[in-house]
């Protein structure tokens, strides 16, 4: 139950206040098609006509979303609370499986792999698509063991030195190595919030995934920690495809190349980040980024 309410805030009060003057039009027309370019020339993940229901179909959380996430890009997903941006993110590595009564239809592919294929191995999929959560959730183990956890369970390291190396490179890539290299044996829960979140990122990249999903990774952090994580995201783009859900439009503008705007489960607009923020095509997008609701 908890995960569900974190993911989507259902019910009328969670929704936005609709601009008064065009309420009728709002209901009728503007969800027919997504504005902008949903495709990408070199897609890593491609979603086609995805619908997601919760509570055995009682709640329609995602409505007919088609979207590509390109190789080596950072795609930001923005929108008001309850718009379904977290839901679609969690669909990408099937984290929604653990929610009772969640149904997904349509197709989501990682390269050529159908993510919702019945024969697909979730373990294998999640080794390829890593995830970073809203609240830093380091395991109550040492910093070293936190990072080594993924490689250990998957058997990625041949021996101890190999594992040491994986841990070090992951921590380096997560820009945390310098801060923790002298206290790898201390519990990960003892780090500061920003360090914890970077530890979680290091933990995710230790498995060398192809895609990293980030669910509001900075919402629990202070501004300085946020800046560090954002910097990190930008660097990670070289090697990983990243989809990031964020509440902060500034953050989307800073870290992403493309931005997708969600509204009540619909994908309203996808465009390059520049375009979305300087010249939004859809009036709902415009209303949102100019702060009329959110």
């Amino acid at each position: 139950m908890n995960t569900l309410s974190e993911t989507i805030e259902t019910g009328p009060d969670a929704n936005l206040i609709v601009p008064q003057e065009n309420e009728g039009a709002f209901r009728e027309q503007q969800f027919e098609d997504t504005v902008g370019d949903v495709t990408h020339p070199n897609p890593r993940i491609s979603c086609r006509e995805v619908d997601v229901y919760y509570d055995h179909g009682a709640v329609h959380a995602i409505k007919n979303v088609t979207l590509d996430i390109g190789t080596g890009e950072v795609l930001a997903m923005i929108g008001p609370s309850g718009c379904g941006k977290s839901t679609i993110l969690r669909c990408l590595n099937r984290m929604n499986d653990s929610i009772d009564g969640c149904q997904v239809s349509g197709s989501i592919r990682l390269d050529e792999l159908d993510i919702y294929d019945k024969n697909l191995d979730v373990v294998l999929l999640r080794a390829q698509i890593g995830m970073v959560f809203q609240k830093p959730n380091p395991f109550p183990k040492s910093i070293y063991d936190n990072v080594a956890y993924g490689p250990k369970i998957h058997g990625l390291a041949k021996d101890k030195t190999d594992l040491d190396e994986i841990v070090q490179t992951s921590l380096e890539r997560a820009a945390l190595w310098e801060e923790v290299k002298d206290r790898l044996g201390q519990p990960g829960t003892g780090l500061s919030g920003g360090q914890q979140q970077r530890l979680c990122i290091a933990r995710a990249i230790a498995v060398s995934p192809e895609v990293i999903l980030m669910d509001e990774p900075c919402s629990a952090l202070d501004p300085i920690a946020t800046a560090k994580v954002e910097e990190l995201i930008d660097e990670l783009r070289q090697q990983y495809t990243i989809a990031i859900v964020t509440h902060s439009m500034q953050q989307a503008a800073r870290v992403s190349q493309r931005t997708a705007y969600f509204h009540l489960g619909h994908l309203v607009e996808v465009n390059t980040t520049d375009k979305v923020f300087t010249n939004p095509q859809h009036h709902l997008t415009e209303a949102y980024i100019t702060g009329r609701f959110g």
């Binding site: 995960t3 590595n93 984290m95 653990s98 979730v122 373990v123 294998l124 999929l125 999640r126 080794a127 890593g130 995830m131 959560f133 959730n137 380091p138 395991f139 956890y149 993924g150 369970i153 998957h154 979680c200 933990r203 995710a204 498995v207």
Partner: peptide, 8 residues
């Protein structure tokens, strides 16, 4: 969730 997301 953290562990599951790593593919455990």
């Amino acid at each position: 969730d953290g562990s599951n997301a790593l593919g455990a």
